[in-house]
């Protein structure tokens, strides 16, 4: 129990640092094409154990979002998207529940549920995150095409790093 809390706390700090120290500077783009942001810190929400109460997931979403916002100089923008993503997590997990159900003590990670499952799960969540994030960033749907482009390109780039993270830090059995 304590071990889980501790490891998640470390992961929170590690991911925030990773995001703001490395991936914040890694927003790809060239003239007229500044569409790629690499966002990886939502892995923290993705990997919270199944038994985490819903309100706590949402609250932790806020916590990590606002921490990243402090460094991005955009109070509330990441936080709102990450709160939204944390809120839909139980629904997404519910839809994707395998026949045998989840082991409540585990995390929804690659090593327990396989790469295909994790890929679908993280894709849905990250897409939701990015779409919400870029919408709040634009704060108007006038630039809806722009929002979609940013979402798609950032999604492709972020997924590469998120899967890489899974392979590096949560190796299989």
């Amino acid at each position: 129990m304590n071990n889980t809390i501790l490891s998640n706390a470390w992961r929170l700090i590690f991911l925030v640092l990773l995001q703001v120290l490395i991936f914040q500077r890694l927003s790809f783009g060239w003239e007229n094409f500044n569409y790629i942001n690499v966002i990886i810190f939502p892995i923290f929400i993705l990997l919270l154990p199944f038994r985490t109460p819903n309100f706590l997931v949402v609250f932790l979403g806020f916590l990590i979002g606002i921490s990243v916002d402090l460094f991005y100089d955009s109070p509330g923008v990441h936080a709102s998207a990450s709160v939204f993503m944390a809120w839909i997590r139980p629904a997404v997990l519910g839809l994707m529940e395998p026949r045998g159900g989840y082991d409540k003590n585990q995390s929804p990670a690659k090593k327990h549920l396989g790469i295909n499952w994790f890929f679908t799960y993280s894709s849905v969540m990250i897409l939701a995150y990015l779409f919400f994030y870029f919408s709040v960033q634009a704060f108007t749907f006038v630039y809806i095409v722009d929002i979609f482009l940013r979402t798609v390109f950032s999604f492709l780039m972020s997924m590469i790093f998120i899967l890489a993270y899974q392979y590096l830090f949560d190796p299989g059995e």
Binding site: P53, N54, F55, V57, V58, F59, G61, F62, G65, I66, D69, S74, P75, G76, V77, A79, S80, V83, F84, A86, W87, P90, V136, Q137, F139, T140
Partner: peptide, 28 residues
């Protein structure tokens, strides 16, 4: 709990977004 926390925190976030971000503030 999830829904309540979500609504409360999302309102807080929007408050922060609108009050501390110039662009979003001007749009709002």
């Amino acid at each position: 709990g999830g829904l309540i926390t979500f609504v409360v925190l999302e309102i807080l976030c929007m408050y922060l977004v609108i009050n501390f971000n110039k662009k979003q503030n001007s749009i709002f």
